[in-house]
Amino acid sequence: MSELITLTIDGVEIKAEKGTSILRAALENGIYIPHLCDHQDLTSVGICRVCLVEIEGRRPTVSCMTPVEEGMVVTTSSEELDMTRKVNMELLILHHDYDCQNCAKNSYCKLQELTRYVGIDEERISAMRAPALDFPIDDSNPYYQRDMNKCVLCGICVRTCEEIQGDECIDFAFRGIETRISVLGDKPIIDSTCVTCGECVSRCPVGALVPQKAIEPTYEVETVCPFCGCGCNILVGARGGKLVSSTAVEDSPVSGGSLCVKGRYGLSFVNSPERLTTPLIRRDGELVEASWEEAISLISEKLGQYKGDQFATIASAKCTVEDNYVLQKFTRAVMGTNNIDHCARL
């Protein structure tokens, strides 16, 4: 346990571990400081300027970049801070395609949350010069959509891609009001080195990065991703008997809340009409539907002709852990061989 520091925020005395930022210390202690670009999984950068606070004896500064110090006296709201923050939010909204009704992030949106908290002066916004928001929507990736008219340039996606995925395929580009998140050569995202892990999509605080065809599930079940041997924990969401979503389990001991393209976007095969629903037996070179009894008796008849190392099993990583357990038991105990492997690389 590292050293505990005592400080006061808005008159409330709190304790926090040394090295924690004022912002995270406040949040851990149930004190809300509005913020946008800070994310608990990522390095803090202090660029959105929303979490501005006053610290006794210093000039106002961002709380996400200031580590707690013994005896610090922090104020999160004053006339000056509130005004600066308000104008900040108003400027942001002015340059945001504010169309919540048609936005996939509606009601999960950090910008909505902030706007509600900070409050904005509609009159001042209408006195400002509104820009044309006409970035084309980047629909090139089949799994997620990029709408830079909604991007608030928090840089969370950039840091996610760099720090979590290690891919570094997106970054800030251009300067001034032209600044946007882009890929090398300012091309559509599909022409970049993006591996569609969706990590950035899951962290984007607004509707700038959203899954294609997002459907809200009515219930979710926690399970293990069926694809590879990593076995990441996932929350599978269903609606009307159909699988509609898959998200990472944040505190998964296996994956720490990360997923890859398959676990996040690759489960739609479950709903495919091409899925097999009965066993198939090849008769005269044609695969024809059969009953389970027929299939099992055919297999046992054929396997009965072999024993020991004449035999080998290739299992599938798509099967459940339980299925594979039974399969190896069968191979070893019934068939009498250790020849078993599986395709963990799918």
Partner: peptide
């Protein structure tokens, strides 16, 4: 200055541009 803003901070990126637009008007 509005052109040279690095674009990271909301007030500098949008605010300088907004001030410019108003001054131009």
């Amino acid at each position: 200055t509005k052109k040279e803003s690095c674009g990271q901070c909301i007030p500098c990126r949008i605010g300088t541009n907004q001030m410019y637009d108003i001054l131009e008007d």
